[in-house]
Design a protein around this nucleic acid. Structure first.
Lengths: 336, 336
DNA sequence: CTGAAAGCGCTTACAG
DNA sequence: CTGAAAGCGCTTACAG
């Protein structure tokens, strides 16, 4: 039943040459090795006819690289990460690289396991939206000399490539928009993670308020526990709207918080755009389709994916010293 | 800069034993090999202290398996596939397996490349939502003796495990619901792919109409080209609603068609639930959040993932003859 | 123009 | 209770 898989040895035998010759032909070094046209053609024909594919495992063991890039995100089913993953996959594919990905659920332990897994699979480069606490593990791959690009979340202690957005400015834009609409009581609904990016989203928010002459003490900031189920979050938000009826605008710091928030608002008697302005981080179909449509801080996903891939391949082909690059991309407020 | 990676040889040297002994200890065969407690402890301590991880590439080359399952879907950024991927990832992880995934964009050529890639990486099993035309390639992995489970799409010519839903009955339920609401002119918006699953969705629809005494000739079925951009699809749908003002209910055969459809309906003067009943295949946040909420044919994703994983691991541990299993799960119409 | 041989880091049948 | 050695399928420095 299990058909025998061909090896380079089989091809060499069929073609009456050594495996060395076959290997050189397969790796495009036939010309530089002055292998005769006749032999090249003979071997290529046999390879094609038999559908021979070199065993990448053996090749990896020998060469130490794998043509695989490891991608580590918090949750691949989050549309933002799924979208980035898809873009990275396309772009890497065109250069002959594959992406393998896995979710960490924002646990440093799981991140460590994944990094170890990827290490033991000899991935050639890493793209990581890191969980807090993963610093040591990330350092270890950097010191292995592998290209590493962090995105979405930044680890300040680490001297490493990063592609992200200007979270501070994004939140600031959002508040400015609220104030421009005459709102005086904006709220921020964020997550209780101690992540630089999340902190920046809050800082931009409070800075915007301060500029508008609204005191810090008047600011409404709700930090939703990361581990909450959606149902728990909805209850929490309903409570917020009940206790603070003066809130006239809300900025949601993540797309899933915005979704919970919209569901919570449905259960109140607040009417969006009349009683309450809403802006969500990350754009998506869901905000376009909502009635009314929801304004969003759209991350430039295409540019993010481009910047990541560019840096990865720059380092993969680097002969010279690597330079750390931090790319901060602007976010566009889409008003609807 | 690049710290030296440890090998089993280094550990053996440090512990003053042979690599054979280290290997047996690492693979939990220390007891059956009667290795002394002292040696076991010494080796384990060194392994731990040095953070040694066996090179999986070498292990794969030697054993012929990889503890990796390959997942091939049409588009990982589609929420249905992203959700399934995440569930499979969790379930496989618990059994010590990793999932690697890639998107085919429904092209047989890309499917072939991916299968070849996975083959050359020696994945242990395959989970595939197959594109039409991939039959030969799938046959080749089956004849390699690897476990294969298809899902979402079925290839009738192939004698292979499958996990799917009862598409015929789902569409039939939807039509029945429309008729129960007094609708007499249901439309089906589907895709022009020649896939069994899509055909079944149409067959259930027309069967429901026929049962209600509505003639085939009166049925409105729009087949949207697969390659359409969203904008093209929206134009097409607006055209449909203009030309067939009698349509009083619509079943969308995929989640992305429903999204385009809802956007198109926004541009007409039709009011959902008043002028037009809507049911979408695949449930999601987007339908829950829409105003009004949209009824959906919810695929039992958890059950689908469970059935796939169960079959995969059953075959991976199979000592006896494998039996082909086809699991068809019921779909629930969620009326909103 | 071409090949024999070493070696990547493991596992395991065999021997003692 | 433990180890020497073969071999998985490649790549490549070296030799001719």
């Amino acid at each position: 039943m299990s058909t025998k898989v061909l090896s380079i040895r089989d091809i060499a035998a069929k073609a009456n040459v050594s495996i060395t010759t076959v290997s050189f032909i397969l790796n495009g070094k036939a010309v530089e090795r002055n292998i005769s046209k006749a032999v090249i053609e003979r071997v290529e024909e046999i390879v094609k006819a038999d559908g021979y594919k070199p065993n990448q495992i053996a090749r990896s063991l020998r060469t130490g690289n794998s043509q695989i890039i490891g991608l580590i995100v918090e949750d691949i089913s989050n549309p933002f990460f799924a979208g980035i993953a898809r873009l990275l996959e396309d772009k890497a594919y065109k250069k002959g690289y594959k992406i393998i990905y896995s979710s960490t659920e924002n646990q440093a332990g799981k991140t460590r396991e994944l990094i170890n897994l990827f290490k033991s699979r000899q991935v050639d480069a890493y793209i990581i939206a890191p969980a807090q606490g993963a610093e040591k593990d990330i350092e270890s791959i950097i010191s292995d000399g592998k290209p590493v690009v962090l995105f979405d979340r930044y680890l300040p202690e680490l001297d490493v490539n990063y592609v992200g957005i200007d979270n501070y400015d994004a939140s600031y834009q959002a508040v400015k928009h609220f104030i421009g609409e005459g709102k005086r009581h904006p709220a921020l609904v964020t997550v209780d993670l101690d992540i630089q990016q999340i902190q920046e989203r809050e800082d931009g928010f409070t800075a915007g308020l301060r500029e508008a002459g609204i005191e810090d003490s008047a600011a409404v900031v709700l930090k939703v526990p990361f581990a909450n189920t959606r149902e728990q979050t909805i209850v929490l938000l309903e409570e917020l709207f009940k206790q603070r009826p003066d809130v006239d605008s809300v900025l949601f710091a993540t797309n899933y918080l915005a979704i919970s928030g919209l569901l919570a608002i449905k259960n109140t008697n607040k009417i969006i755009n009349k009683d309450l302005s809403v802006i969500a981080y990350d754009d998506g179909d869901i905000f376009k389709l909502h009635t009314p449509q929801i304004s969003a801080l759209a991350q430039p996903v295409e540019e993010i994916a481009d910047a990541i891939i560019r840096k990865i391949f720059q380092e993969l082909s680097a002969t010279t010293e690597k330079t750390i690059e931090r790319t901060i991309l602007p976010v566009q407020l889409i008003v609807r």
